[in-house]
Design a protein around this nucleic acid. Sequence first.
RNA 1: GGAUCUUUAGCUCAGUUGGCUAGAGCGCACGAUUCACAUUCGUGAGGUCACUGGUUCGAAUCCAGUAAGAUCCACCA
Length: 880
Amino acid sequence: MTFAKSYEPGDYESDIYAAWEAAGIFEPTVPTVPTDDDGNGIDDREKITNSSTFSIVMPPPNANGNLHIGHGLTIALEDSLTRYYRLRGESTWYIPGADHAGFETWVVYEKELEKQGHTRFEYSRDDLYARVWDFVAKQRGNMELQLRALGASCAWDDLTFTLDENVIDRVYTTFEKMWNDGLIYRDEKLVNYCPKHRTAFADIEVEHKDEKGTLWDIEYKLAEDSDGPVHSLIVSTTRPETLFGDTAVAVNPEDKRYKSLIGKHVKLPLTDRTIPIIADEHADPEYGTGAVKITPAHDFDDFEVGERHQLERIKVISENGTMINVPNEYEGLTTTECRKKVLKDLKEAGLLRGEKKIEHSVGHCYKCGTVLEPMLKEQWFVDVAKLAKTAIVHLENDEIRFFPANKKSILINYYKGLKDWNISRQIPWGIAIPMFRKADDSATDEPDWIFDRRTNLREIEKAGVTYVRDEDTFDTWFSSSHWPIVCTDWTEENYNPYYPLNVMETGADILFAWVARMIMMGLYVTGEVPFKEVYLHGLVLDEHGKKMSKSKGNVINPMDLVTKYGSDAFRLGILRGRSAGMNQAFSENSVIAGRNLCNKLWNISRLVQSIVDKSEDSISDSYTTENMGEDWICREINDCLEQVAADMENYRFAEAVETIYSTIWDKYADWFLESQKLFRNTSLLKHTLEALLIALHPFAPFVTEVIWQNLSWADGFIATKKWPKSFEFDPISAENFENIRIIVSEARSTLAALGSANNAKKYDLLYDNDSLVEDNLLLIKALLKVPAINPLNGAPRGLRLALANHEVYLDVPEKAVNDYRDALTEKILSVGRELDALNLRMSNPNYVEKAPEHLVKETKDAITEKTALIARLKQQLELI
RNA sequence: GGAUCUUUAGCUCAGUUGGCUAGAGCGCACGAUUCACAUUCGUGAGGUCACUGGUUCGAAUCCAGUAAGAUCCACCA
């Protein structure tokens, strides 16, 4: 292959990925379990602990969805880590996943059903499960192709789908253990319920929004005669339709107005029921009239009040959102219709005493936006107290490092306030809860519920008693909390070198929903934390710093960017300027900068290859440095490699990329390669180019691999090479080159200041008594592009460069020097200001006394240098 | 109501335990150009580090407060 004039990512990327995949280089090299002679797994740690491993799991994208920009960031982060540790020689295992996305997929499928004129109620649970399975199978595959396009170097053979058998098995094993440990219980509680989707949610899934609403005042007349002035209670409510479910009115025990009424009763409007007046702290004397209706079946606070006072729970709203257990004329109305009628009837009865507009927060379904109904339902709950407590102990023991670090205490706080976890969902698309209910009431000695794995059966028989399967499925977070365990094939029997994971990388927004639960579950199942480090990324915002959303129309599709600029450019661009946990704006400019870097590297390689082609040297594994530029680039590359290693250790991706970027561009291309146009050290060129390619490979895998495949001397895949060793060089020689750079830069800057009117570039350079310049005439001439460099020979003339330690002049005519007079004066003033600042510092005895020695020395040296510089510049000014 | 985070150049962001003249990319201005690259090269302009106090020899950095913005948790009859 030869190098085209510019790098066109689209011409190579898919072939390169296919070649990697065919070569099987993404598979880990150390087995998960050592085996005995019969091929059975054994617990022989000796056999595998000698090799080091790096494991990381992919937060599974929706199996039948498309990747969004957040996935793009996720892959860029995770794959950079994976490829970096692969180059560092670890047995890396990046385990890909696909999510059945229980609720999301269900919502999509249900819409599809509706389009076809059907509803879920026409089918059995098992039918629906099979239908969604087919639906997903047909849609599947897009996201896996997109992961490949992004360059994810994951072990495809080990892809885990969240409904795989081993996942379900593990989840059932855990559930059984929890059931036996008494951590699972069934209870009738209020849950957040979406009447449209007809399923309950966990607290964490509820989306609270501030909304405008109305607060109505309703009069409840006292049932008993009263001696005092009070003959009725006014209660305030935003939900008048629930009054049929009221079983008490509460007042605050300290509220003097109502003290005498406690224990008496009121008539419930529009009904013939009377309900008691109770005393409870929940009633706030300052709010409204201080009296509050209590509806235990339809309000979370009221439920708790009801618990305290053993109030009856009357359920007046059904699962489909219509009224039940209410007077005939209201029966079957929707809640909205019922509210209207109740208000109308109250008004007619003269019991509606006022209304005002308020703003309050209301729970919504995060998918369809429907207002959630607190609904009384029997559900399975996990008693989280012990799990959370254990998790806190391990976190406080610093067994997991967090990036950003403050998330640890946030998580501990969360665990402290964690309520029991509702794991039942009324959605067919998910893992069936392996519990069966006794069908025959007469078998009184048998338990009401039994655990059984045979969830493919609707009915089972045990000890002659028939049991019917619970129709519900697990909350997807219950199964995904096992993710590190199931992906690494962790088992009770054998030591697994990939568990715990080295790092869990995911979005900061699911710290509670996912990370918190993986930690609890990992500890419960394996006794170990499931990962040693957690890196949380923030949201990718649009270019103006706003959240991306379909409704705003500001969504950026990562695949469009990959097509337009290449996968590497996208990865480099999305990593730039990003740090752990921060929401950050996306900037297409950064992707463009990434694209430019790829092209730059391509052309650097093209130049190096052309030099190698012309060279008559035989290919050699060793190198020597023969001039200053070579020593200098070795020094710079060593610094770069060290810096990148430190950055990766601390998950500072943006800094790592920045470091390599400037080493490749500002140092290697701009200075070293320019100098190599004179001195052609082919074996060093090869080694240094390889080092830079390898250093960039984790972040830009495609272009580095394409170049690698193109280089005449390189073999194998760069993806599996070893991280470069540091280069040997002469530090004094390297520092000399640094001085040449300073001279050249100063000369360029002065030439530019002389301006185009003076046709600056035709001036010669003069030097006096300066061996560094004298010994490097050719190099300086090439870098500076001046016509000639000559010894001064005689009195100073032309324009002296503002260098303290070198006597170098630009051979400009007197007129041009005069034109430069103002610039020179300004320069003297500005150096003078710096000198003043330094002198001021030294004149402070506290500084000299208390600041570290090396700083004081640096200050002294700077003063000496600047003093000399000013003297020389002033001398020059006098000459003019 | 509780908590966390952010505020640095026109834009998007770095700036690790306090320490040289606060940096990068993009944008802007001026200049260059056969001979790796216009996805290029060179030079430059541009910052009261949100504000007010404090600690310190020294503060963008640490502390306290104020302002603006963002996010999360809880709750609002």
